[in-house]
Amino acid sequence: MSEWGTYTLSDLVMFSPRVYFRLVERYNQQFWPLQLVWIAGAILILAPAATGVPRARVAAFPLLAAAWLFCAWQFFWERYTAIHWGMSYAAGAFLLQAGLLALSPAPARQTDGPASRLRHRGGICLMLFGLLAYPCLAWPAGRSLASAEIFAMMPDPTATTTLGTVLAVAASGKRGWVLLPIPLLWCAFSGLTLLALEDPGAWASLAVIVATFVLLLADRR
């Protein structure tokens, strides 16, 4: 323990911001315009799912599973592991989350009681933040929009959108709890990594964690 105590956040980051965001830029370029397909598809399915449309509710978690699978394969396994050997474990965690989402489909109708209004609306806000605001964060962070982080392509907006959808769709029952730890842990890891890289995007990841816990606690009252 004493030796671990001598490490700082920056000791655990083994690449420079320039290398990381160039990796994201090249990744985005290689798949353009798939990003638009992911965002449009997610809005078409997740928004009605959150408002209770039965078919959309059934399709929501499989869509999220596909997003986590794509992120695990294309971002973590094919790219991020090249500059961070530890990301092979993250790829495994993302695969596990894809499996959990695939095996935990939301029922066509609400069966476990309604979510509180605050949690439901807050979940929708988080979901929209992940889908629409996250790609724009590159701009206030002083980065090129080519390094925009987009749902299903990149882990942070994928985790954020998933947390929002689970909060809005899985309502107040225990069904959704199993789907929360991995996205929350990822947001914590990512926030700390971006802090070490001195990227303002760190605060978005950390704010998502706070928002999720606020909505969960509000629902328990």
């Binding site: 083994m14 690449f15 790219r79 500059i83």
Partner: peptide, 13 residues
């Protein structure tokens, strides 16, 4: 080479 040479397969870097 710690950090500085960890550039993945980026041809420019």
């Amino acid at each position: 080479t710690w950090i500085t040479f960890n550039v993945g397969d980026d041809p420019v870097l």
